[in-house]
C-alpha cells in the first residue's frame, strides 16, 4: 500500500514539475519522476500481500504433480507486472535519454532552455 501511495505521489510530483517548471531539463526530470512513479504503481498493483518473490527456490512452497510439472502451493507475487516494469523502465530510459539529447541540441540552436522561448509554432 505504501508503495502504491508513494508511486502516486511521485506521479503527481512529476506532473507538477512538468506543468510548472519552465526549464526544459527540469521538465524532463519531472517526466522521469512521473515515469518512476508509474513503475512503482505497477509493481504495487502486481504485489500480493505476504507473498514471496516468484522465483522457484526454497522460499516458495512447491510440489511435483503427477505429470511432473511444478505446482506452486504458497503465495507468490504475480511475476508479470514486475516483468512489465522491467520493459517499461528500459523504454522510459530511452525516452528520457532522447529527450535530454533533444534538449542539448535545442540549447545549441536556441541558446535557451526556457520552454517559453520556443513558441514560434502556434495557432
Amino acid at each position: 500500500m505504501m508503495v502504491l501511495i508513494c508511486g502516486l505521489l511521485l506521479m503527481l510530483i512529476g506532473i507538477w514539475a512538468m506543468l510548472i517548471k519552465k526549464n526544459i531539463i527540469r521538465i524532463i526530470i519531472g517526466f522521469s519522476i512521473l515515469d518512476t512513479g508509474t513503475h512503482l504503481v505497477i509493481v504495487a498493483i502486481g504485489y500480493v500481500k505476504h507473498a514471496t518473490a516468484p522465483i522457484v527456490d526454497k522460499a516458495v512452497n512447491i510440489s511435483q504433480n503427477a505429470e511432473g510439472g511444478i505446482q506452486v502451493l504458497g503465495k507468490v507475487v504475480d511475476p508479470v507486472p514486475s516483468a512489465l516494469v522491467l520493459t517499461a523502465i528500459v523504454i522510459g530510459l530511452a525516452v528520457t535519454a532522447l529527450l535530454l539529447s533533444f534538449a542539448v541540441r535545442l540549447y545549441k540552436v536556441g541558446n535557451s532552455l526556457n520552454i517559453n522561448d520556443y513558441e514560434e509554432l502556434k495557432w
Binding site: 526544459i24 529527450l99 533533444f102 534538449a103 535545442l106 540552436v109 514560434e120 509554432l121
Partner: peptide, 10 residues
C-alpha cells in the same frame, strides 16, 4: 535538426 523541429520533437 532545426530549432522548430527540435522543439516540436520535445
Amino acid at each position: 535538426q532545426n530549432k522548430n523541429s527540435l522543439v516540436a520533437g520535445i
